[in-house]
Design a protein around this nucleic acid. Structure first.
Lengths: 231, 231
DNA sequence: ATCGCCTCAAAGATATGACGTATTCAAGTG
DNA sequence: CACTTGAATACGTCATATCTTTGAGGCGAT
């Protein structure tokens, strides 16, 4: 998934440093400095910097160096950027943004899934809804998380829209982060579980409006819960 | 905006080739071959390839070469990828995906803008609505496009959500593509113009529900028009 | 004949030194 | 004071050498 080799390791250092604000906007790095600091060659530094440049997190200019770009320019949809921000200091801002995005996208995806899902998708969705119910009752948060991710990813994928489908990983990151940082109730709410079942049933019944509505209730609830926890 | 220098030129060749399917999934390139083909050094090839790897369009493995990855892995939200696909052979698939995305995001953004927009935003929005009305009547498609882009970008930005704000460029690409490839009526429909004014007024009046509804009508119409034109 | 191990070579990964080039800053000039 | 000019600087590109990983074919044992 990640970028491999030494440039990858450099990225794993630089990316989080920038995302967390440790290297603020306007900070300047020099190639040579990075070579020494990480004990690697120019080749490696340049390749890592190019990738960061591709994400618009830095810009490299002659006679100046490598400068950190304002956050407003970053490719905020890049999975790496999202992961770095979730791990760092503006985790809550990132979670809020993602919450709004989910509110926009997931209901639409559910509606599309109701008309576009394959038979296999529908079967798996029903099965996942059952799994969710069981693991929620057992208060097994880890397994619950796994099934929750699978459920939401599947709905996004079943929508038949490639862009929605790609948000599966992003939603997975949100759900994982929410669980890791204890931003959700310790026991999944029975009401939320019922809504998941409703989404699955509506999609199986090709009832787009109902699927959309139930999904909207789920993500609205999640966003409210988040705002509650974050103040 | 783009990546500069020789690696940038390489990207402008390779990216579109891959996006258009000229280099299909599984196709293999070798570093040396690219060096010769483009008359550049290893350094340049490697940096360009790294960027493509960051977009997950290719993967580089020892003893094998640089292989084109399946489309399902690409970072479909990357602005470069979107531009390449819009310019190439699966323009219509890309426009459809983006259409659904707009349907999900823009109404939500309009609703948020109604409560989050600054006074400056509201003023500019009203002004843009007037501009749209005027240029639509004059059937000046180029200027109309410019204002249309400004309008939608502003709503997305005024939502206060950074992720929505970033979709401004994407929407701009859609609108531009739609005009360039004659996928819209030659004279903007008066009804659509009225809806834009309604969005502006609702946002100014902090009427989230109305703003959302009017925006939904706009993008629904755009998507229907698109499906009509593309069959 | 099949399986497993070993060796070799192919291709990327990294390191390094040299040179090119744009850009900034400041000294010098009118 | 404005403008020109030149030198210093840090990235950009090239060429070359060496290292590392890994796929494929060969070889032997079962």
């Amino acid at each position: 998934m990640e970028i491999q080799g030494l440039p990858g390791r450099l990225l794993d250092e630089l990316g989080p440093s920038i995302a967390s604000g440790e290297l603020p906007e306007g900070a300047v790095l020099r190639t040579e400095e990075l070579e020494e600091r990480f004990g690697v060659s120019r080749t490696v530094v340049r390749e890592a910097v190019r990738v960061l440049e591709g994400m618009r997190m830095v810009a490299s200019r002659r006679r100046v160096g490598i400068t950190v770009q304002p956050k407003s320019l970053w490719d905020v949809f890049d999975p790496m950027v999202i992961r770095w921000r979730l791990a760092g200091s503006d985790r809550s801002a990132q979670l809020r943004s993602l919450g709004s995005l989910r509110m926009a996208v997931e209901p639409a995806a559910a509606a599309l899934a109701a008309t576009h899902a394959s038979d296999d998708d529908r079967r798996e969705l029903s099965s996942l809804a059952v799994d969710l119910t069981v693991t929620a009752r057992a208060a097994d948060l880890t397994t619950f998380l796994k099934h929750d991710i699978a459920f939401h990813s599947l709905v996004l994928r079943a929508s038949g829209n490639e862009m929605f489908a790609h948000l599966g990983d992003t939603v997975a990151a949100v759900l994982t982060g929410r669980t890791e940082y204890h931003l959700m109730p310790h026991q999944p709410e029975p009401y939320a579980i019922r809504l998941h079942r409703e989404v699955a049933e509506a999609i199986c019944a090709e009832d787009a409006a109902h699927a959309e509505q139930a999904m909207r209730t789920i993500v609205t609830g999640a966003l409210e819960e988040l705002n509650l926890q974050l103040g």
